[in-house]
Structure formats: C-alpha cells, structure tokens
Amino acid sequence: MAEVNIPKRKSDEVLVRMVYSGKLAAMDTLIDRYYSLCFGICMAVLKDYDDASDACQNCFVNVFKNIGKFRGDGNFRSWVLTIARNESFSVLRQSKNRRENVYEKMEPALRSREDVPREVFLRIESSQVREVVETLPDKQRLAIKLRIDEGLSFKEIGQIIGSSEGASRVNYHHGIGKLKELLGA
C-alpha cells in the first residue's frame, strides 16, 4: 500500500517565526486562519459591515506591523483577539453616530446547503430574537455573540469585554436567562 504524506498543519508559533524571517506566505496563512474570527469580534462590537471590515483590516496591519513585539510567550490567537478588540473599540468611538439602522445591511450566514430548510425556519423565528438581543446590556450581548457565533472561551470573552473569566460566564448565563424570559422560551 502506498504511503500518503499528509502535510502537517503548521502551528501559529512556527508561522510567526516564518514571518520573522520574511516569508510572506506564512503571513497569508495566519490571515486565512484568523480573519473570520477577527471579523466576528469586530462585527459583534460594531454591528456594521463596513466598520467591521475596516477594523479587521487594521487589526491585521497592526498585528504584522508589530510582529517584532510579539514574543510568542502569549499565543498568537490571544494576541489577535486583543488587537481586534482594540481596533473595534477605536472604530466604535469614531463612528457612534453612524450606528442606526445597521441591521438592514446585515446578511446572516448559512451554515451549509443541507441545513437550508431548518435555517429558513430558524431565520423567521430569529428575527424576533434579534430585536430582543438588542435590548440586552452590552456585556451580556457580546458574551452571547462571542460564545455562540465564534466559540470563544469565557476567558477569551473576558479579554474582549474587559472582565474576568467568571464574570464573562455570568454575563453569558444572565443574558441567556433574560432572553428565555423575554421570548417566553
């Protein structure tokens, strides 16, 4: 039987070292690995496609501009989260006045083709949920979005919303509890 060589996925640490030595392809791989997560965070904070895209771009520019400051003792993912958070809040400060009617621009994502009928059903139901989510305090709303949409750990959520791991867990559960109550679920 012929042996198949499956190329190993390079760790973030290895890729960062490759970037240090000037390999642009490693930079692209890191971008491919994290742009979606980064956009999700920016979107959760900013609630606007254009602002989130800008913040996400700035995030990666700053990530690589300051790659020399990244010592590799923390992990790269955590570093991206911190910079994404900082970029988002800086854009938010600049564009608070443009935050009305942003949801008209939002295009919810589909999970996969097989899920379409269930997705459609859920989407109709979800429009009501969307309105209710907006009534939640920011920290609860962000904890829910980051946990459900992006799969962030409570520690990582704490990093974004500026609270401890325990406090972000509480924010999440309180938010879910409040949604259940408001939606009569």
């Binding site: 742009y35 979606s36 956009f39 999700g40 979107m43 496609y49 989130a52 939002m106 295009e107 919810p108 994502a109 589909l110 999970r111 997705e119 859920l122 989407r123 139901e125 979800s126 949920v129 969307r130 989510v133 829910i144 979005k145 459900i148 949409d149 879910i176 949604l179 259940k180 939606l183 679920a185």
Partner: peptide, 15 residues
C-alpha cells in the same frame, strides 16, 4: 436553550 442558541446562531453575520 438549544433552540434559542440555534436561533441566535443563524443570526451571525456572514464574513
């Protein structure tokens, strides 16, 4: 809670 989370998940924006 699972149903609620499913409804929240479909609201996530496309990248």
């Amino acid at each position: 809670e699972l149903e609620l989370i499913e409804k929240l998940f479909v609201l996530r924006p496309a990248t």
